[in-house]
Design a binder for these strands. Structure first.
Length: 333
DNA sequence: TATTCCTCGTGGTGATTCAC
DNA sequence: GTGAATCACCACGAGGAATA
């Protein structure tokens, strides 16, 4: 790595990512979900989309629910009356998409043109009135399953929980409900560039109480992550970080800091604190020396992070090729 | 088909408090 | 005095979904 520039590494990373997106992954013969292994037969893989869809549905949903809602609805959308029934049932429990679901249920039996239906649904989506719901812990648990995130802070080791949503209204419901129920406030932050909002819980006591409440009220897809986070005390921060990363899959994989990266971040954080103290005591020279050291460490940190991402990409691509992945000719520009 | 939007997961920074 | 822990705020990239 010595002598390699950040710009050069970034170009290599971009090239590897380009290669990775042009790979046709090896055939999948089985997959595991919910502790069960599902075999995928060649016909389902090769041509029968419905067959593969049914398999996935069986794996990821409740058997009864999937029969009622899933396999055929996506295929027959627009003419199956069970779609209308499903939309009506969902509308009874939905806060955010009630108007759209009611419209969908009505339109399936109306004579309106497909184009007209499409415009009406789009208008309902824009105009959806966010009437205040009967906010409850089961509602928050369900919302968190879909939009929540549990993280261990890289340089502090602190547990953090966040909810993200483009519409700030729902986050305010949750913040208000929680303040009323538990007497503590949450920080709500709006992302400048995208306009999306995030609700943060960072006080360690509040994080623990919140996770326990979510678990007690039906948290499902993030259950394992929440239990792992709550095991802190018996397990090290690094192990919890690693476990949470594994549970969240490959998303943002190449952004994650390695254990060495976390140590660098912690060192920088400690030096920054010292510099700040020297500055506050008027020891300007010492503060300036530390600032120079911090800048050098930050450059090294950035370069090392890029190198780690590059090595991980290399290794992932090699493994895929070993397993039978090939370049997709149709994606070669 | 290209572009924009939206969500998820992640990292950085500064201030304050606490323990040694 | 110092390092560790905590809290609060801010921001961005990836990639799938929605839209033009």
């Amino acid at each position: 790595m010595h002598g390699t520039s950040l710009r050069y590494l970034q170009r290599r990373i971009d090239a590897l990512k380009g290669l990775q997106t042009r790979l046709l992954w090896p055939p999948m013969w089985q997959f595991r979900a919910g502790g069960e292994t599902f075999k995928v037969s060649p016909p389902a893989l090769n041509c029968c989309r419905t067959g593969l869809l049914s398999l996935l549905v069986r794996a990821f949903t409740h058997p009864k629910a999937c029969c009622a809602i899933w396999p055929d609805s996506s295929m027959k959308l627009g003419k199956g009356e069970h779609v209308g029934k499903a939309a009506m049932q969902l509308a009874e429990r939905s806060f955010l998409k009630r108007q759209q679901l009611l419209l969908a249920a009505e339109q399936l039996s109306s004579t309106c043109t497909p184009e007209g239906q499409k415009h009406a649904l789009a208008a309902a989506r824009v105009q959806e009135g966010y009437s205040a719901p009967r906010c409850s812990w089961p509602f928050i648990a369900g919302f968190f399953d879909a939009e929540g995130c549990i993280q261990v802070h890289p340089s502090t080791g602190a547990l953090r929980v966040s909810f993200s949503q483009n519409t700030v209204t729902v986050l305010r419901w949750i913040a208000d409900f929680r303040q009323h129920d538990m007497g503590s406030t949450l920080s709500l932050w709006r992302h400048g560039a995208t306009g999306a909002s995030q609700l943060w819980v960072e006080c360690q006591h509040d994080v623990h109480v919140l996770l326990r409440r979510l678990l007690d009220n039906g948290l499902l897809t993030k259950r394992s992550s929440a239990l792992l986070a709550l095991s802190r005390g018996d397990t090290s921060c690094l192990d919890i970080r690693h476990g949470l990363s594994r549970l969240s899959g490959n998303q943002s994989k190449y952004l994650r800091s390695t254990p060495a990266g976390i140590k660098r971040a912690q060192r920088i954080s400690a030096l920054r604190q010292s510099a700040s103290r020297y500055l506050s005591r008027g020891q300007l020279e010492k503060s300036r020396e530390l600032c120079l050291e911090i800048e050098a460490l930050k450059r090294e940190h950035e370069l090392s992070n890029a190198f780690d991402a590059y090595r991980t990409l290399q290794s992932d691509i090699r493994e895929l090729l070993t397993q039978g992945a090939v370049l997709d000719d149709a994606k070669i520009l």
